[in-house]
Simulated assay, not measured.
Amino acid sequence: MKIERISIVVPCFNEEAALPLFYEELENTRKKLKQADIEYIFVDDGSKDKTLAVIKKLAKNDEKRIHYVSFSRNFGKEAALYAGLQYATGDYVAVMDADLQDPPELLPEMLSLIRNQNYDCIGTRRVTRNGEPPVRSFFAKQFYKWMNRISETEFIDGARDYRLMTRRMVEAVLSVSEVNRFSKGIFSWVGFDTYYLPYKNKERVAGETSWSFWGLVNYSLDAVINFSDLPLTFASFIGIFSFFISIIFLIFIVVRALLFGDPTAGWPSLVTIFLAIGGLQLFCLGIVGKYLGKTYLETKKRPLYILKETDRTDEDKDRRL
């Protein structure tokens, strides 16, 4: 039976402390895989610490399996994921974080399911959020709840980027070459048969997360804009609603003037109304501006990332098994 290759794509940003532990765990898991071997694609996303040096040290000791891609600066996790998928050459491709919050021990089961059940993707989803701040957990649950209401693309509550995909699904994901990326949505949007393995949340083994609360909020806004046009509809509804309210107020003013004359009182209420309507207009313009800004970035056609160095060749990048 053919020995199949699994490419493990690992986006890294300041993961100097976690990488040796991650590699050790994956090597233990590799020995449990049946008729399969692993290649590692570490993507250094402009780290400020010694992440790249650690990757090179690991690669020196395991040149056959470990490969790396390094960016000229920090381009974000989405760009790192895309680059890793481009350079992966395996029959199957897995996406994992280096902090071991994605349990490597699930890989053998994921491989078995994808082989025997004819799935194109085995994803993972957290069923608990132990160790996570309650506020973040609350907003995360609300995000998935509302995204499924406003978008035609399905968003699985607790889903992680950690997944194992067939080559044809990877090619489909790579064909979505938009600059403004939200991988969880893209993985769902391209379709294919997917099964989600549940697991309990794990905390980082080392280092600190690069995601702040507001960073996650902005990331969520990107998801809304990329996979739903409902905010634009909402902005239009607010405009129509404000127009009808103004007509009602106009009728009220005319009737009051005919019945009671035209008093000069009421300037505070008028100023309040003007401020309210002005605020609604600016709010709607902000929504439109957000979509317009994303469109503007797409039309620039800038690359998702700029490569600084890699041990892979263009032939490796273009090779698809």
Rank of each mutant, 00 (worst) to 15 (best):
K145M: 13
K50R: 15
F139I: 14
G191F: 15
K141A: 06
F155S: 09
F192C: 08
P133L: 14
Y87K: 00
Q86F: 08
D157C: 15
L81Y: 08
I55S: 10
K64S: 11
I150P: 10
L81R: 05
E154V: 07
S47P: 04
S112V: 05
D161H: 12
D102S: 14
N148E: 08
D49E: 13
N74K: 14
M147H: 01
G84N: 01
E78S: 00
L100I: 04
L58W: 12
M96K: 02
I156N: 07
N118Q: 09
L85A: 05
A53N: 04
K57A: 02
V69D: 00
D49A: 14
R167C: 03
F182M: 05
R163G: 05
A98T: 07
R129Q: 15
F192Y: 10
V173A: 04
A79G: 01
E78L: 00
A83Q: 01
A59P: 09
K60N: 11
D91W: 03
L164W: 06
E178L: 03
N116F: 02
K145S: 14
T166F: 01
P108E: 02
I55K: 09
K48E: 13
R163P: 03
R126K: 07
Y195R: 12
V54D: 11
A80V: 00
L113S: 00
L58N: 10
N61I: 14
K50P: 11
N118S: 08
K141G: 03
F182I: 05
Y162L: 13
E152A: 07
A94H: 02
W146Y: 12
K48L: 13
R73N: 02
M110T: 04
Q86H: 08
E171F: 05
A53H: 04
V179A: 04
S70M: 13
V179C: 03
L107W: 05
R163M: 07
I114Y: 10
A140C: 06
V135I: 11
F182W: 06
P133S: 14
D91K: 08
